[in-house]
Write a protein that binds this DNA or RNA. Sequence first.
RNA 1: GGGCGUUUAGCUCAGCUGGUUUAGAGCAUCUGCCCUACAAGCAGAGGGUCCGCGGUUCGAAUCCGUGAACGCCCACCA
Length: 912
Amino acid sequence: MADNKKDNVSEAKKENTNYNPQEVESRWYQYWTDKGLFHSEPDGREPFTVVIPPPNVTGVLHMGHVLNETIQDVLVRRARLEGKNACWVPGTDHASIATEAKVIKRLKEQGINKQDLTREEFLKHAWDWTDEHGGIILKQLRKLGCSCDWDRTAFTMDETRSRAVIKVFVDLYKKGLIYKGLRMVNWDPERQTALSDEEVIYHEEHSKFYYLKYRVAESDGMSLPVGEGVYKDEKGYYCVVATTRPETIFGDIAVCINPKEEKNQWLRGKHVVVPGVGREIPIIEDRYVEIGFGTGCLKVTPAHDVNDYALGQTHNLRAIDIFTADAHLNMDTVEEELQANVRKYHGMDRFECRKQIVEDLQAMGLVEKIEDYDNKVGYSERTNVPIEPRLSLQWFLKMQHFADIALPPVMNDEIVFYPAKYKNTYKNWLENIKDWCISRQLWWGHRIPAWYDKALLDEVGAEKYPQEKIVVCEGNPNEGLSEERYVQDEGALDTWFSSWLWPISLFDGIEHPDNKELAYYYPTADLVTGPDIIFFWVARMIMAGYEYTGKMPFKHVYFTGIVRDKLGRKMSKSLGNSPDPLDLIERYGADGVRMGILLSAPAGNDILYDDSLCEQGRNFCNKIWNCFRMLKGLQTADIEAPRTDRETVTWFTLCLCKAEQEVDDLMKKYRLSEALMAVYKLFTDEFSGWYLEMIKPAYGSPIAKKTYDCSMLFFERMLRLLHPFMPFITEELYHALSEREDGDTIMREDRMEWDSTALLAQDTDGGFWQEIEHVKQVVAGVRNIRAQHNISPREEITLISPKPLSELVNKLTHSKVEVGGKRPAMVATFIVGTSEYAVPLNEFIDVEAERKKLEADLAHQEGFLRGVEAKLGNEKFMAHAKPEVVEMERKKQHDALERITAIKARLEALNG
RNA sequence: GGGCGUUUAGCUCAGCUGGUUUAGAGCAUCUGCCCUACAAGCAGAGGGUCCGCGGUUCGAAUCCGUGAACGCCCACCA
């Protein structure tokens, strides 16, 4: 019953006292963009540039973006308030492989196969898809309040960016840094393209180790010894080769042993027969084979393993590629005389074939044993399909040069990483850099500007085509020719080959390196991104930056953590633990969501997201809203402000100045969540909890105009402090606070008069500050007594104080202060600093309980005193410690003694 | 196999070059309150062998060594 009533009252109140963000947010975003407040043009002010890490063009907003973009917006908005010319450039990424996959999937749903389309037809579909689904995410960013300069919205495959990419490719080729070559690359059989090393993700897996019998060729197997490592059965001698990938035996070209390994010496110079295949292959020797691992016999399959390929190179072995591009078995490459043995596997999927071949070999008695084995398998980052090492003709960028120019600036903090620990990761990668495979067998992307002489290509084929006959140029070499003499490379470039130019190409700095925008906006200020793309993107931007502008691309890099659910799991579609940010904004307001995500997000730390964080944000908005309502509702009068108002205003001025400094300091260190927390505490505790209660006039009475004006000023200051974090509610209240001119905004440079010295003049010795801080503690003490003794807040009490107190105490505790008055027997006491206060009680107190409490307190104080005195009595301490430390200990001793005296007196009174 | 990082209240984290009233914050918890700004609120309270062990020091959450647990990155052991 009672509960129901309670709910009803609350429900009824909710109607008109809660802040309602929805309407406010759309209205102000419209206003900001209508007035062009996010747009930037070069001018005389200091620039503050941020380029967005471009989300996939067809992506949708997820919690990771919310974190990332909120941080950027906070930095940008703060810079704007500081009077800098802030420019946050938005855009999207063409995301070559991801987008192409999506387009293929859609085409499939429509019954169309990519293979049946020409490149041009496919690209038309891809652009249609992009136009249809592209940029949704940019619209969603507006809901979050992101203050991007939308006039500058770019796309990594728009004209300017494309020209930059092609120009850079040609330039690097001319510098001899790009080459084409036949290499073992990471092949994604699903998308049928090469990948860079960074796009391969290794997973630990429980797999099997298959021990296969390779029989010694008959010609070699006449009279052999018996001993350790020598295997023999009724059919003759054999060696055992352990492999995790039995399906690759069709490409076996040798078995390798370590020349130092005793037990395999008998195999030297012999030949063995690949089981089930029938190919006779030599035993080769190489120290690469680790002694003691497996059987010491390694099958060499140069076409399907990186190491085997290297072995093949040194031992001059041929490579038999037994897979098609989509990782099905291709037996056409196997020798004709062996076709009968292997034909049945033709066309099988690699994993299906693995099962089959093992079964068949077992039937033939060619499997020695099968063991469980844990190993690492590489997966394609994009398609999540196991990578197939594959020999193919690809384009590479030589990286040593870039590593050389990109390492020093980070190590010596010209470019500062937050948190700094990622410097190690960065260093480690650069010091072990490998060439970057930049070509992809995709259509959606920047097509490689390399051209081949058609006739020559037909004649010699791609693999034999001489490097020096490749034409690399920005234009079309067929231009002006009567016939199509040159054909263009079919490949496209890795997406990151355009992303790495982003901070430069956004300002058209590749094509026009001398342009005034680049000169003004570049280097950019801060880059905010996840540590997962430190190699993909951050490192490479630094490389491109120095290569093409001679300068760093950004001064600071802020690495965010990963957003996880409250159980610490990564957010993923399959787990269904990822909330929809738009839904959250609907429920808590954008400001609430921003605060929620920021509160527990120190740089580089994963954040455990929980709705309750947004709730806290929403509640804070409500708090601000209600403070405003209260202030606005006050009646003012042209009366002199009471002394308590002057004390309070002066005290709060100091609070505010301190908080502003603190926020400033924290922001410089990129400790955003702490900065926000500082503002939160200032607003909630000091302003709402204390200040407003202190200046609140008696019921029905007006407030002094001057006090009111100061309060409004404070409020506006706090709105500004808060604006970068919570842009909507602060703009709303900025306008509600007083009449503003059309086009005015809280975002304009902070020109507010803020002469705190005038206010502080009343308090030259800081006496007010100390007084109020003391008052707060006395008030807390009285409240405590009320709570403990169940005294209603409406009941007036007497407070016996050793010294006169500010009127504020009466006001906030509803008490009558008596200075040094005589104490009745029944009192409750508390100590602030070294002063003891007493509140007479009507009821009988529990003497026993009171004594216990006092005795516990006494024990604590005495323990404390002993610790202090031990130090002061220690000669070495007195000799070594700094004078101010000793002084502090003396003060501690003095205070402790006073408190002990007071407690003892109180105990005696209790007893007596 | 290398490298890096973390370990402080139930949870998320501050605590910088050792000394600031015998360790702080927010959230959560418990108790009492709808008192005309706010119950999405207010007031109060409880809660910690600062991962273990050893060392340096007058003094250690803080510095050094060592062990453990967890996390991340890199690496070709088939």
